[in-house]
Design a protein around this nucleic acid. Structure first.
Lengths: 204, 204
DNA sequence: TCCCTTCCCTAACAAGTGTTTGGTAGGTTA
DNA sequence: TAACCTACCAAACACTTGTTAGGGAAGGGA
């Protein structure tokens, strides 16, 4: 039961759809969703605006597919980490590393998510953004609490503040990260973890 | 030589302008600049769209005034800190604290800046955003380098990565911060500094 | 009383928006 | 060859957008 183009009697190739989704994601990330016209996307893809509607239902549908497929892949990686039964510190390390790998693979999608998710989440179509965010909070906050209980994380900090601190430090990286840069995702994760866990001050 | 309404023979009161700027900033922050219509702003202010043009030149002019007045006030505080001749660690502490105070005072403006500055900076009208960002980088990066040289900050980290880390962790707070919440700006600054400087792990 | 200023409304404009409809070039299949 | 499918174009649609022009109500000062 296909979701797209149900009424129309056409079957666009998934490969071409993938290409178009990638270019659309780049434009959305660069200009913002609302500032991006379908004519701009089509232009970037070397075709006319109307032709996009052979492949997709709507502009919103394109955005939906970009975000949901990103989140699907993200949670595939996260669930694997969470199921591994690691200790709190090792779980945080694995989650952060996995996050930077996702940023590496889905830079545009992450940037879009960062900018638009807050007001998109109010729409029914994007309700899964709220679900994902809740699941996200549960995983990270739970791990941090486990760590405090096990005395591997500090207990003198507001735990929710700590959660937002760790979460934000990781994901905002998508705003400046460029694949193929000086540092690999793993190297960036290593340094970020070192800063988050041990701080940037010299120990006395 | 007034900048606005130069041709028209009118003189809107600064007080009313301030109110309208505040509501506009709230809507921009909540919905995004491009997704916000002037009709929505006017609606929120209890008037009709056209009436906004008695007070302002254009929608872009409103945005311009929100951002530039925020940056003016920000640099007033920053310059004071930088001129105080503090040590590197104390300078970072003062800058972070000052930043959270600005977030407290200009939450909406900061949120808009976060979301829109990247692609706004490409326009000539908003060239001052680029200048500000460069000045910003010079101040923070310079302080961090001073700290490494003075052996108060770690030397085994990529300094640019550290800069982005500290910068982002502070400013993304505007996305979740709400004035009048549980913690004061100073308290949030204190805990953030504690995390950034000493890490969240228990010292062994 | 009359005038002037402040502040907003009514009504419209032109440009740009996402989207639809019908058509067609080129390759594949029967 | 004929029928068909894929992937696009050309042209238009209805609607929303930022913006403008003219007018008018309320109030203060002369």
């Amino acid at each position: 039961m296909p979701k797209q183009n149900d009424s129309k009697n056409v079957t666009p190739s998934p490969a071409r759809r993938g290409e178009l989704l990638a270019t659309a994601a780049e434009v959305f990330a660069a200009q913002g969703y609302n500032a991006t016209t379908v004519r701009k996307i089509a232009d970037e893809a070397g075709m006319l605006a109307g032709s996009l509607y052979y492949h997709f239902d709507s502009k919103e549908g394109i955005l939906d597919e970009i975000l949901s497929s990103f989140l699907d892949e993200l949670w595939q990686g996260y669930d694997e980490v969470l199921a591994a039964g690691l200790g709190p510190r090792e779980t945080i390390e694995a989650l952060v590393t996995e996050s930077f790998r996702e940023i590496d693979r889905h830079r545009a999608a992450v940037a879009i998510y960062q900018k638009e998710s807050r007001h998109l989440a109010q729409q029914e179509r994007f309700a899964y953004l709220v679900e994902s965010q809740q699941k996200f909070e549960k995983a990270w906050l739970g791990t941090l609490e486990r760590g405090v209980a096990a005395q591997v994380f500090r207990s003198d900090l507001d735990i929710r503040l700590t959660y937002r601190f760790v979460r934000d430090t990781v994901w905002v990286a998508a705003s400046w990260y460029r694949p193929g840069g000086q540092h690999s995702p793993e190297e960036i994760a290593r340094q970020y973890l070192s800063m988050v866990l041990d701080g940037i001050a010299v120990r006395t």
